[in-house]
Design a protein around this nucleic acid. Sequence first.
DNA 1: ATTATTTGTCTATACAACTAGACAAAAATG
DNA 2: CATTTTTGTCTAGTTGTATAGACAAATAAT
Lengths: 245, 245
Amino acid sequence: MSETLGQMDRGAGVALWRQIAERLRADIAAGVYPHNARLPSEAELAGRFKVNRHTVRRAIGALAEENILRADRGRGTFVASRPIDYPIGRRTRFSEIVSRQKRQPGGRLVASSEEGADILVAEKLGIAPGSRVIRLETLSAVDGVPLTRATSWFPAERFPGLVAAYAETGSITKALERHGIADYTRLETRISARVAGADDAEHLSLPPGAVVLVSEAVNIDAEGNPIQFARARFAGDRVQIVVES
Amino acid sequence: MSETLGQMDRGAGVALWRQIAERLRADIAAGVYPHNARLPSEAELAGRFKVNRHTVRRAIGALAEENILRADRGRGTFVASRPIDYPIGRRTRFSEIVSRQKRQPGGRLVASSEEGADILVAEKLGIAPGSRVIRLETLSAVDGVPLTRATSWFPAERFPGLVAAYAETGSITKALERHGIADYTRLETRISARVAGADDAEHLSLPPGAVVLVSEAVNIDAEGNPIQFARARFAGDRVQIVVES
DNA sequence: ATTATTTGTCTATACAACTAGACAAAAATG
DNA sequence: CATTTTTGTCTAGTTGTATAGACAAATAAT
């Protein structure tokens, strides 16, 4: 469908090399250039985008830095990564999704704290503002490449040892199991997009300014009580969110 | 929750003024600065973001250009727009969603053509590649402000007069009704994010380089036959996509 | 009426981004 | 083996981005 063609937008606050990099990223994610495929030559791309070859080189350089592309002198430039599908439904579990696609999941704890719930968190968890909540900052990776950075809030009184349980297992599902939550489901998911902030960019190994998908979700237990409010940031190009109805 | 604070990322291909503009946009969409609220002064913002006042001014200027902000000399800078929720589920209809939020929907035909289905479209519609399909390029607005730009494909033999019917009604639901489709449902929706291309940016009145949400969806009739494949691009900040499970 | 605060406009300077052209080095082609 | 294609490196000039400071014009506060 969408050929790699068309004007870039000059002087709009986004450097040309970055626009080209994002375009190539999107094309790779969309399968225009599959795994191990050869990209058009730098001269060819420069012609298509109507920019100087050096500008294309900088875009390719940035993607090579992220191990998305690999450039071989005399041979060409090749695709070195595949995107991953991320289905969202009633029973969304990070590790299940990744394992199903025959890849290696991994989660680690970046930070945690206990704090008073602000208005948004309180509303989502159905508790009074100011109630104690546990905040978990986590980072989940696929095949060692960071994919999503999430902030989760849990009612503190219900899950006293949650931080330790997550740190040990690297999985929220398993950590909740230890607190007697055999099963939980997703109530709603809100998805938006924005440019990555410095903090997310660093943890997700993104060049700051790259696009992240933001997913805000509420999980409930079997009785319908909210047990988790999560805000996850996905590397917008390494993932495609799939909504099944 | 998220205060308007923190470092911007210098020299990452995205100009500081644009990063600040996107940050303010996100804060407005998230309700940190509600409708008609006053923003901190330029000097104050410059201090928070640790940039020169002129850089903040350029960011504000860009948002004012889009009628998201309004700057009054001597008084301050004010929020002039609200975001809209866009729920996705089994029965997603643009006009219903917008009307429910007490706003005025409007769709118009940008372009249309009949063409051979490429591999992706053929797969989604469950037809042979090369089969004739109708392509509709549409633009949907809320209160006169363009919100989403969509490309839809329909099997041509089944919907001969579809283009005229849409041009007349401004609604895909109504156009399909005339072809005997009393009801249809959504099979799956795939959501990704990228930087807006020149074409989308123009139609959505976005500064090129802004973020768009891309939603790819398949709609089926009561018998389960695919009748429409659509790729919609949303202004990433004027909308929040809500997934209900 | 005076003062302080806030946005608007101007000049000047430093640095990043983009373009242009030339040539080297490695690999594929015939 | 010679030729072509491709990525890598260098220099130089132009345009966009960000900083700094000063002052004007409108509004709000005292």
